[in-house]
């Protein structure tokens, strides 16, 4: 019985993985290198490192793209919807898991089925409804769909998780006279922290990168989020390569930092989010 893989096999496996990793990272590396070149240099030196490192692309792209606004909006949409999704999913998940009601199968089922509903399925009705309700070009008109879209997975994950908390904890608190909101705040919410973290991370990555809805539901520049703002650099500004790549790098950086910090939780969230399609 041999436990160790033979040397040639090892070399082969390592080279496959290294090639794969190289192909994964090279486009990102190329993008960052290109963002430090002037447009003139980019045209003659497309593959190499910058001969002269230029930093000015960044402040110029920031100004042209209005990145200040874009960042603020993206943060508002991401943080606002994530807080709401986590809170609403936990509270409804608590009710579904721990309070008996004949309404649960129907209500809970309506959320679970929604896991299969994509933004595409509701894009046009949402646009028409937002128009009718006067919610186009408002922040709440963007936050509400984001919250609703996060609910199916949120309810599913939270209900399953809270079910695994022993009933006896809730029952003994009831006997001691605690109200349900009280039990939620002091027992369930603290114990459900792991699932809340997973859900928050799934939601942050989803909303931060979301493009289609916010693009359709906003026309005012002051309400657009990062992905919508960045798209501007592929149209009219696309021949100004240096600034285009700087804009892309700025758009990419926040999520790379977020990933670097929460790598383990993101990995866990992805496999937890895939428990059921």
């Amino acid at each position: 019985m041999k436990r160790e893989t033979s040397l040639p096999a090892r070399v082969l496996l390592y080279s496959v993985l290294l090639i794969f990793t190289f192909m994964t990272l090279y486009p990102v590396f190329w993008l960052i290198m290109s963002s430090f070149k002037t447009t003139q240099e980019f045209q003659v030196n497309r593959l190499g490192l910058p001969r002269r490192w230029i930093l000015t692309n960044y402040p110029l792209a920031w100004k042209i793209g209005g990145f200040g606004h874009l960042f603020i909006n993206s943060i508002i949409y991401t943080v606002g919807s994530t807080l709401a999704v986590v809170l609403l999913s936990l509270s409804a998940g608590f009710a579904f898991a721990k309070i008996k009601s004949r309404a649960t199968p129907f209500l809970h089922g309506s959320f679970v089925i929604g896991i299969l509903l994509s933004a595409e399925a509701v894009l046009i009705p949402l646009f028409l409804m937002a128009n009718a309700a006067g919610l186009t070009d408002t922040r709440i008109g963007i936050l509400l769909p984001y919250i609703g879209m996060g609910m199916p997975k949120g309810i599913y994950l939270c209900t399953e998780y809270i079910k695994s908390i022993p009933d006896s904890l809730v029952e003994s608190a009831r006997i001691d006279g605690a109200s349900y909101p009280r039990i939620f705040a002091s027992i369930i919410a603290p114990m459900a922290k792991p699932v809340a973290t997973t859900l928050a991370i799934l939601n942050v990555t989803g909303v931060w990168n979301e493009f289609m809805l916010v693009n359709v539901l906003t026309s005012k520049a002051s309400l657009k989020s990062l992905p919508v703002g960045i798209l501007k650099f592929s149209g009219a500004l696309s021949s100004d390569y240096g600034k285009q790549f700087a804009a892309l790098a700025v758009g990419m950086l926040p999520m790379l930092i977020f990933y670097a910090i929460f790598r383990n939780q993101i990995t866990k969230g992805v496999s937890a989010g895939a428990v059921k399609g």
Binding site: A84, L88, A92, G114, L117, P125, P145, G148, M151, P152
Partner: peptide
């Protein structure tokens, strides 16, 4: 118990039905 159930479930149901479930049927 019923009040608590309604209170805990209602916000999620309202938002979700307004922006996902209803639009899906509306579509």
């Amino acid at each position: 118990e019923r009040w608590a159930y309604a209170l805990l479930v209602m916000p999620a149901v309202l938002v979700y039905w307004a922006v996902m479930a209803f639009p899906a049927f509306f579509s």
